[in-house]
C-alpha cells in the first residue's frame, strides 16, 4: 500500500457506509437484533484486539468485563433505580478499576500462565454472578429496564441498531488513532520484543495496564449496552465459553487488524444464526471452521485476504 493512512481511513469510511447502508437490506426485527449483537461483539473485539493482537497479551477472561458492565447497568437501574446512562458510566469506571487492580499481577505473567490467570479471573467473576442471587438474580439472570434518554424510551431494534453502530464507529476511530500514535507504537512494541521496548524507555507494566484497562472499559460499555438492548442478562455472558468465543472472533478475523476483529465478530455472530436450521450440527461446523482457519489462514481472514489481494495485483 503506497499510503498506509489511506487504507486506515478508507477502512473507517467503508465501516461507516456499511453501518449506514445495512438497514436497507435488514428485513425485520429479527435481523436487526442479530445486527445489534454483531455490533456489540465487534465493539468488544476491537478493544480485545488491542490487547491480544497489538500488545500480544492473551486474555481468556474478557467476557467477565463485558458482564461486569452489563450487571452494573442491570443492578444499578433495577435495584437502586439509577439513571441508565449514569449506571453505564459507573459500570465502565468500576470495571476499569477492577481491571486496573488485576492488571499488574496478571500481566507480569506470560504465555500459558497468562492464559491460565485470565481464565481463572473470568471464571471467578462468572461464579460470583451465579451465586450472589440476592444481587444478581443468579443463574436465571436479571431483567433490565429500558434505557431512557430524557423522555425518550430507547426500545426499538432500529434505535439500538443506530446506538450500536455509532458506538462501533467511534471506538474503531479511537482504536485506529491509538494504533498509529506514540502510545500505540509502544503497545505494539510489547508484542514485538518486550526487552527491546524496555531498553527504549517504555514502561512495560504501565503500558500493558493501559491497554488492559482500555479493552476492559470498552467491553464493559458494550456489556451495558447489551443489557439494555436485550433488557436481560445472565451469568453466561461472563462464562469461560463466552470469553473463548470473543478471543476466537479476534483470531479468526485477524490479529492486529482492527477491521479483522470486526469481520471475525460478524462471522461468528451471524454464522450460528445461519446454521440455526442445522442446530444439531452447529458445534461441529463451528469447531471445524475454527481449526481449519487457524491451520490454513493462521494470520486470520482479513490479513490473509489482504496479502492475497496484494499478491494478485502484482
Amino acid at each position: 500500500m503506497a499510503n498506509p493512512a489511506l487504507g486506515r481511513w478508507g477502512g473507517l469510511i467503508v465501516l461507516i457506509v456499511v453501518v449506514a447502508a445495512l438497514p436497507l437490506v435488514l428485513p425485520n426485527k429479527f435481523y436487526y437484533d442479530i445486527a445489534v449483537k454483531t455490533g456489540l461483539n465487534a465493539l468488544v473485539c476491537v478493544g480485545l484486539n488491542l490487547l491480544i493482537g497489538y500488545a500480544g497479551q492473551i486474555s481468556l477472561g474478557h467476557a467477565a468485563f463485558f458482564a461486569l458492565g452489563g450487571y452494573a447497568s442491570a443492578v444499578l437501574t433495577t435495584r437502586y433505580e439509577w439513571n441508565g446512562f449514569l449506571a453505564l458510566g459507573a459500570g465502565a469506571v468500576a470495571t476499569g478499576i477492577v481491571a486496573y487492580l488485576v492488571a499488574r499481577p496478571i500481566l507480569r505473567l506470560k504465555g500459558h500462565y497468562l492464559a491460565m490467570a485470565t481464565l481463572a479471573f473470568g471464571i471467578i467473576v462468572s461464579l460470583v454472578l451465579n451465586r450472589e442471587i440476592w444481587l444478581t438474580g443468579g443463574p436465571d439472570g436479571i431483567t433490565v429496564p429500558t434505557l431512557r434518554l430524557g423522555d425518550m424510551r430507547l426500545r426499538s431494534a432500529e434505535t439500538w441498531y443506530w446506538i450500536t453502530g455509532g458506538a462501533l464507529v467511534v471506538v474503531t476511530y479511537l482504536a485506529l488513532n491509538l494504533i498509529h500514535s506514540p502510545s500505540g507504537r509502544a503497545i505494539r512494541a510489547l508484542h514485538g520484543s518486550e526487552v527491546a521496548a524496555e531498553t527504549l524507555g517504555i514502561d512495560v507494566a504501565r503500558t500493558k495496564t493501559m491497554v488492559f484497562v482500555l479493552s476492559a472499559v470498552i467491553a464493559a460499555i458494550a456489556g451495558s449496552l447489551f443489557a439494555h438492548a436485550d433488557r436481560f442478562i445472565t451469568p453466561n455472558e461472563a462464562g469461560f465459553l463466552r470469553s473463548v468465543e470473543l478471543v476466537t472472533m479476534v483470531v479468526l478475523g485477524g490479529m492486529a487488524s482492527t477491521f479483522g476483529a470486526i469481520v471475525g465478530a460478524a462471522l461468528l455472530t451471524v454464522l450460528p444464526q445461519a446454521l440455526a436450521g442445522f442446530d444439531e450440527f452447529k458445534h461441529i461446523v463451528l469447531g471445524a471452521i475454527l481449526v481449519g482457519t487457524m491451520i490454513f489462514l493462521p494470520k486470520g481472514l482479513v490479513p490473509s485476504l489482504g496479502a492475497l489481494i496484494r499478491r494478485w495485483r502484482r
Partner: peptide, 30 residues
C-alpha cells in the same frame, strides 16, 4: 530484538518514545 510486527521506520519511531509529548489520552483522541 526487532519489532517484527512493524515496518522498518516504525521500529525506529518507537525509539522516539522518550521524546514524545502526547500521553495515552492524547494518542487515543488524536
Amino acid at each position: 530484538q526487532i519489532f517484527f510486527n512493524m515496518s522498518a521506520i516504525e521500529n525506529v519511531m518507537v525509539g522516539r518514545h522518550l521524546r514524545r509529548r502526547a500521553g495515552f489520552l492524547g494518542s487515543l483522541f488524536a
